[in-house]
Amino acid sequence: MKYLKQFCIIISISFTGEVLNKLIPLPIPASIYGIIILFTLLCTKVLKVSDVKEVSKFLIEVMPIMFVPPAVGLLKSWGIIQNNLWQYAVVTVVSTVVVMIISGLITQAFIRISKKERKK
């Protein structure tokens, strides 16, 4: 029963997110509405972490494999990508790496500065 109930809660929130996505004319997907809903329900104590704990832990753990099928979908748009392959590859790889480095370093610098200030 426990797992059934937890799964039920998560699926209902996902469904609500999907409905919001259809009703609200913004490019915000169901998953983002869903995170916000579940987060709000937890913050307002409507739900306890224990109400979704095990199933959410499981789903997060197996999440990487869920990205395999959409990634295989690359096969379909290969025709368009093929013509500009190296350009597209350079843009994608370089910008991903640069964003990771810059956002990480800026956040870290900010944290360290505020830690120092707190010590003073």
Binding site: I10, I11, I13, S14, G17, E18, P29, A30, S31, I32, G34, I35, I36, I37, L38, F39, L42, C43, V49, V52, K53, V55, S56, K57, L59, I60, V62, M63, I65, M66, F67, V68, P69, P70
Partner: peptide, 18 residues
């Protein structure tokens, strides 16, 4: 398999809250 991406993303709210 991939249809579970949305529910799993929703679950990210739990560590976020914790």
């Amino acid at each position: 398999i991939s249809c579970m991406i949305t529910p799993s993303t929703v679950c990210l709210a739990v560590p976020l809250y914790e």
